[in-house]
């Protein structure tokens, strides 16, 4: 098989997001910030979110990690920015189904946009954690009671 299968995982879009991450950095004004670690490699990801009117007004990430974790975090920010909190949490759940090889509806797939491409990580079980890290961090932030509206 050699490296041919790698093309499924490392699509151009994914390499592009890893090389040129979107919404990279920290928010000066955030409703919440969370740092998560991938214990297998020591990678760290920080996610900051600003919520206004029950909507994700801004979301950023920083930290270090592999191509998959960086691209997945970058794609997450592009997909979830400006989404209502409830909708964002639904999409995060759909994404976690996707990367663990569970089917999701066409409608959700459409809403996840390019992030769907990360779904091929399901065939690389040791890398699922890398893809999930940023999304877990944001979901934890959105679930926190303390993360209220900033007007």
């Amino acid at each position: 098989m050699g490296l041919a299968k790698l093309n499924q995982l490392y699509r151009e879009v994914i390499l592009d997001h890893a090389q040129n991450p979107r919404h990279h950095g920290d928010l000066t004004k955030a409703s919440g910030t969370l740092t998560l670690r991938n214990p297998t490699c020591g990678d760290v990801i920080n996610v900051s979110v600003l919520i206004r009117d029950n909507q994700i007004a801004d979301v950023t990430f920083s930290g270090t990690g592999c191509t998959i974790s960086q691209a997945s975090a970058s794609l997450m920010t592009t997909v979830l920015i400006h989404q209502p909190v409830d909708q964002a949490r639904q999409l995060i759940l759909a994404f976690s189904h996707l990367i663990t090889g569970q089917p999701i509806s066409e409608q959700l797939e459409e809403q996840l946009g390019d992030a769907v491409l990360v779904g091929s990580v399901a065939e690389f079980p040791t890398r699922i954690k890398c893809a999930a890290l940023a999304w877990h961090a944001l979901d934890n932030l959105l679930a926190q009671k303390g993360v209220g509206n900033h007007d």
Partner: peptide, 25 residues
């Protein structure tokens, strides 16, 4: 290149190596 990406690439070639902090942070 992150070592995880390198190790996944090597795994596709049948080569098993470790990637991570090796319990030596």
């Amino acid at each position: 290149l992150h070592p995880h990406d390198l190790a996944t690439g090597l795994d596709m070639e049948g080569i098993a190596v470790r990637a991570g902090h090796h319990c030596a942070q």
